[in-house]
């Protein structure tokens, strides 16, 4: 093994990893916020709102993510007339994608809480939203943690698809190196190791949070 060559890859790969982490976190945050809104629409009494979320879920789950990324990258500028950098388009596409799945994670967490909890909150005099915030969501969140961690790892891995629109995240950073020197296997092994590292860290964090809350 040529140690010097391998370590010369590290800075570029770490830059890629940094962007991958930023994209993953941004998509998880935006996706959770939008997913929460979708989940509340789904649970509302108004059928039209439920219909919108069902349609949204069908599109996000039915279309390949690659197509969604390309649609946002090429389609949004046509719709809005604003040209956006690939990294922004990528973040938007991943957020929309993550939201579709987070909506279901959050919805199932909320309906998993005994309806008697909401009733008890209302009977004390709390409004629907107060009962949701103070009583239902804290309990729902506990049940959501493993699913949120799972979604994090999915979003993390799917950031690699953004390489097709030229976002220099971890996968693209690797490709850029081996396109020049054909050191394909070693570079890809390093790229893969970095993904696994983040994956294990996220998994560990999730079990820690879970254990802490269950105490």
């Amino acid at each position: 093994m040529d140690h010097e060559v391998v370590s010369s890859y590290v800075p570029a790969l770490l830059n890629g990893l940094g962007l991958t982490l930023i994209l993953t976190l941004a998509s998880m945050i935006a996706g959770t916020i939008l997913g929460f809104a979708l989940a509340m629409m789904r649970l509302s009494r108004f059928l039209i709102l439920g219909g919108i979320t069902t349609l949204y879920g069908t599109l996000v789950r039915g279309l390949p993510l690659l197509i969604q990324i390309l649609l946002v990258y090429f389609g949004l500028p046509l719709l809005t007339g604003i040209r956006m950098p690939a990294v922004v388009a990528g973040a938007v596409a991943l957020s929309l994608f993550t939201a579709g799945y987070m909506a279901e994670v959050i919805r199932s967490g909320i309906v998993g809480v005994d309806p008697g909890q909401m009733e008890a909150g209302r009977s004390i005099g709390f409004s629907y939203w107060q009962s949701m915030r103070l009583i239902v969501l804290p309990q729902a969140f506990r049940m959501m943690i493993p699913n949120i961690a799972n979604q994090f790892s999915i979003t993390l891995k799917d950031t690699s698809l953004l390489s097709v629109i030229g976002v220099v995240e971890l996968t693209m950073a690797g490709q850029t190196i081996y396109a020049l020197n054909f050191d394909t296997i070693r570079v890809l092994a390093m790229v893969g190791a970095l993904y696994l590292l983040v994956f294990f860290a996220a998994e560990r964090l999730s079990s820690l949070v879970e254990a802490r809350i269950r105490r």
Binding site: D114, S123, G125, L134, Q139
Partner: peptide
């Protein structure tokens, strides 16, 4: 909501808030 504050309700299945202590259940 205001009306329900003046009407206490006790349920068959208690419906205590499991994520809160006894004290917090009462003071919420």
């Amino acid at each position: 909501d205001r009306l329900r504050r003046s009407i206490g309700m006790v349920f068959q299945n208690f419906n205590l808030f499991p994520h809160l202590s006894v004290l917090q259940n009462i003071t919420l």
